[in-house]
């Protein structure tokens, strides 16, 4: 996939001396959903804000579909829609007027059909004539998305789209993102919910202290760094591990009802076959077995801790 956004050695030092971005380089591929994961203050919002034109970079460059965001800002910005983290809307404005305004601001001719489609897609059509201050928090957030989509951008930046949003709305948001991806929109979202990146991203970038620690295909990342656990439920509880099993990385849990075996999926051998035969040799009868993969969260915490220790 060709890159639609190319970030090259981007630097941002604020006037107070705070260095928010330290040489960030990143290729965003056309049509992908990229999740930027990082703790608070990692530089996620600064990175997005710089690409979108809200913050001036102090070094490096960004190209959007080949257009430099400074020298060719009109063409670059015309391709981008931005959904900010905070709910920032003119409270007295009507929903539909607010969305029309956004389209006009980007220099697009009136297109009521597109506005209707966008509002319907976000379940806002029935509320089109409501004043924004009359809407619930979740609806306001969708108005922000509708505004960002009003000018038919090819790239959509969502800054913490589900921060402080309840579970049901979060799932709704994920469906919206999936729908947009199907329409061919490239989506970059920041989040500190690992669950969110896991659910909707194609690739995950981890950012901490203004640096990109890694950008990788989500599945590859999880496979590469993932540790798997095998949970073995026992027919009869045991009080301690039989001697013959001490060479395996086993842990006795649930008062002796189950064993947890941790192994690395990237290793040449997982050791499961031997474990199972050793178990039967020790006369342990199994009731059930299940495997689980470590989540992105564990991977992420590990990475950030490594970075902090360095």
């Amino acid at each position: 996939m060709p890159a639609i956004v190319t970030v090259d050695s981007l630097e941002k030092t604020y006037a107070d001396g705070f260095k928010a971005l330290s040489g960030v380089s990143l290729d965003i591929e056309q049509g992908e959903v990229l999740a930027l994961l990082g703790p608070n203050g990692a530089g996620k919002t600064t990175l997005i804000s710089t690409i979108c034109g809200l913050v001036q970079a102090t070094g490096g460059s960004v190209r959007v579909d080949g257009h430099d965001i400074v020298t060719d800002y009109r063409k670059a910005r015309a391709l981008i829609g931005l959904v900010p983290q905070e709910i920032t809307l003119e409270p007295f404005d009507k929903v539909i007027n607010s969305v029309r305004f956004s389209r006009g601001l980007f220099g697009k001719p009136r297109d009521e059909a597109h506005i209707e489609k966008t509002l319907r897609q976000l379940s806002l059509w029935d509320k089109r004539n409501s004043r924004i201050m009359e809407l619930s928090g979740g609806m306001k957030r969708r108005v922000l998305i509708a505004k960002a989509l009003a000018h038919e951008p090819r790239i959509l930046f969502l800054d913490e789209p589900t921060a402080g949003v309840d579970v049901e709305l979060r799932r709704g948001m994920w469906e919206t993102v999936a729908g947009l991806k199907n329409d061919g929109v490239t989506i970059i979202l920041t989040t500190h919910y690992i669950e969110e990146a896991e659910a909707i991203a194609d690739r995950v970038g981890v950012i901490s202290k203004g640096r990109i620690l890694l950008v990788e295909d989500k599945d590859t990342l999880m496979n590469r760094m993932g540790r798997k656990q095998l949970r073995i439920e026992l027919h009869e509880p045991v009080s301690e591990l039989p001697d013959g099993l001490s060479e395996h990385d086993l842990e006795l849990v649930d008062g002796g009802d189950a064993l947890i075996y941790t192994y690395d999926t990237t290793g040449a051998r997982t050791g499961i076959t031997r474990l199972l035969s050793d178990l039967s040799e020790a006369g342990i009868v199994l009731r059930d077995i299940q495997t689980s993969q470590s989540s992105l969260e564990e991977i992420f915490v590990g990475l950030v801790q490594e970075e902090n220790a360095a």
Binding site: C52, G53, L82, P84, E86, L105
Partner: peptide, 10 residues
């Protein structure tokens, strides 16, 4: 905060 829209528009 709605100024973000103005600053990110062409």
């Amino acid at each position: 905060g709605t100024i973000y829209e103005l600053l990110s528009a062409p």
